[in-house]
Write a protein that binds this DNA or RNA. Structure first.
Lengths: 216, 216
DNA sequence: AAATATAGTGCTCATAAGAGCACTTGTCAA
DNA sequence: TTGACAAGTGCTCTTATGAGCACTATATTT
């Protein structure tokens, strides 16, 4: 069992992990020292020894950057059989281009995928994810490069956030409808509402049901 | 765009990734050479140069093991065995209360969990999710009731978005630091920055690495 | 007051490890 | 046949980096 760390040791352990995560390789003793204002490698080395002793890392002797951080994997609720997996986890494809003619499910359109909770997309037949271009929805908390999770459907209700196609151009906007009049409302003061006059070239691809953002 | 690799280059790239995944740090040129029966570091070095040129890795000059493998988004794949699951999916606990005294991992504090892509939290030892209260970060696209994904750590860099504890009250803010002065910056014009004067009652619980939102 | 633990300095030393040159071998296309 | 290219050898050179010693400082405990 891992033993309690001092504040200093915890700080240093966190730094090692973060460094490794950002660079793909762990820091040297001197890089650690520099980060914390420790001028001597020996001072840092003793922290390593302490972290090894307490079971948080492994250090390969005489190997530069030879630090292995031991993970702390605590399982929550996990599937018991392979067949169970879809009850616990779901992957949704990230669609590169959304165009009217092209079926959403087209494989050549894949651009990776996102992992979501199946409970969240329950009841929606076909879902896909879309990487947001532009900042027209920032006031709705949808930023450039976020991924929106979309339930595929060709209709919408007033006030839904939708993925709409105008002349084969995909856009995320809030759907506004009164009687026979339709507008696509941006949520950014620098943009103007788009009024749909020609319904021939207008299409709804789906309704936004979620947003996922990762920093870095 | 990444260019095509020769068979040899592909083998070597795979080995580097596998080595790093197993050990937590990349191999040296000599270790790579040993694996493939290449006795000269120069032979290996030229493979590295080729991989850099073709956009698959980064190499830090004169740094031992300074190889960063650039990630490649693969298309949807599913685990083949139960043991594989954690490579594909991860659940992160939603923490009810974040308080200075209480360990984050305390089970009684669970409030369900969120499903995320393990690749996104790779390298972070302990992660948790937190439901956002209040609208002080709307300009950063973090809305009330969103879940923020947090990597547990007790330090932060200037400009990180952090979960901070002041007098046992948890808050999400942008971390601002200059010399010895620390401020927590809201991203909403209706709120004022919080200046940290008493560091006794101030604590950093973690760094926000992602945001998840579900509508309805 | 003495003992103990954590944290750090300023060195030295040995070596692990990257950089690079001149030369060789084998394959394939023009 | 020639030329281009990938792949590898056997070196040398430099330096980045881990190991370790003797000593200091500051708490906290005994």
């Amino acid at each position: 069992m891992k033993k309690e760390l001092t504040d200093r040791q915890q700080e240093i352990l966190s730094f090692i992990e973060q460094f490794r995560d950002e660079n793909g390789y762990p820091p040297t003793l001197r890089q650690i020292g520099k980060q914390f204002g420790i001028s001597s490698t020996f001072g840092v080395k003793r922290h390593m020894d302490a972290l090894v002793k307490k079971g948080h890392i492994l250090v390969e002797s005489n190997a530069s950057r030879g630090i292995t951080v031991l993970s702390n994997f605590e399982s929550i609720s996990m599937p018991q059989t392979l067949g169970d997996i879809e009850k616990y986890f779901k992957r949704i494809p990230i669609i590169g281009r959304v165009a009217a003619g092209v079926p959403i499910t087209a494989v050549e359109n894949h651009d990776g995928d996102v992992v979501v909770d199946p409970a969240m997309v329950k009841g929606f037949d076909t879902c896909f994810a879309l990487k947001v271009k532009g900042d027209s929805m920032v006031n709705a908390g949808i930023m450039e490069k976020d991924h929106v999770i979309v339930a595929a459907q060709n209709f919408a209700k007033h006030d839904d956030i939708v993925v709409a196609l105008i002349d084969d151009e995909a856009t995320v906007k809030r759907y506004w409808q009164k009687n026979n009049q339709i507008k696509l409302m941006p949520e950014n003061d620098n943009y103007q509402p788009i009024e749909i006059v020609n319904k021939e070239v207008f299409h709804i691809a789906g309704k936004v049901i979620g947003v996922i953002r990762w920093y870095n």
